[in-house]
Design a protein around this nucleic acid. Structure first.
Lengths: 138, 138
DNA sequence: TATTGTTATACTCTATAACTATA
DNA sequence: TATAGTTATAGAGTATAACAATA
């Protein structure tokens, strides 16, 4: 096994390449898709909640949400219990975009996973995603 | 095990979060570090070679290399055998930056790998990086 | 004609700073 | 004082289009 610093470098450089490759596929921008997907499995989230979940600054999330709202994919309503907060929700359009375009976005990736990897490798990859999730939270 | 489309979505969303988290650490921009690192283990690479290796467009790589050159971290010399090509090389400053600042860039990540993961998990992660590399090449 | 590289331009993504409103 | 959110601005990262030079 590699030394830990070498593993860290390898991790950083491999991930940046894969993300670049994913971004190159046609479809809606991946950062936006991630927000729509998260809203689809969350209820009552505000800007700060979304920012924390996606590991970005609230200001960055506010701008992303504003753009999604401009495109009619999300809506915001005030939280009656805490008038500082706004609750972000998917619109019908947002849900449709997630369903249709979201599938298209991952068509290439799913195809690669099916063609290039076998069952055992996909299982290994899925387990590694749990580890990567822990790293992102650290 | 998840269905393949779900795994694809999980992969995309997990990786974007981890990369965000890595980018948030102080240090030189990770895209530049990746280029310096690659030059450190490559000889005779031109713009197109680097772009292909890093899975980005030659125009994007040309700009990145120009900025690295402006900062004195890489140099370019014409290829005597093919006058269209330029060969990109690390300067002494580039090598020093890679050594000193590069380590600093990955200090956080190496610390997380050491604290949060055990030997077996690090081994799993390393194997998964090979799979991710194959995905990036696909 | 195909390949290598360049410049110009624009879009995506994210951050910091400075601010308002509410708890 | 602390928290939720907003707007302005800037920087990092990458792409497409249009082009020149060489193979």
């Amino acid at each position: 096994m590699s030394e830990i610093p070498a593993l860290a470098t390898n991790l950083r450089e491999t991930l940046i390449r894969v993300v670049r490759r994913m971004r190159a596929e046609p479809g809606p921008p991946i950062a936006r898709m991630a927000i729509l997907n998260r809203l689809d499995r969350t209820t009552g989230a505000g800007i700060s909640d979304l920012a924390a979940a996606e590991r970005m600054r609230p200001q960055s999330m506010a701008q992303a949400v504003r753009e999604l709202e401009d495109d009619g994919l999300v809506s915001r309503r005030p939280d009656p219990d805490d008038r500082r907060r706004v609750v972000i929700e998917l619109t019908a359009d947002g849900r449709e975009t997630l369903r249709v375009t979201g599938e298209r976005r991952d068509t290439w990736l799913a195809g690669v996973l099916e063609r290039e990897l076998d069952d055992e490798e996909r299982r290994q990859l899925e387990q590694a995603l749990a580890l990567l999730g822990r790293i992102a939270e650290a």
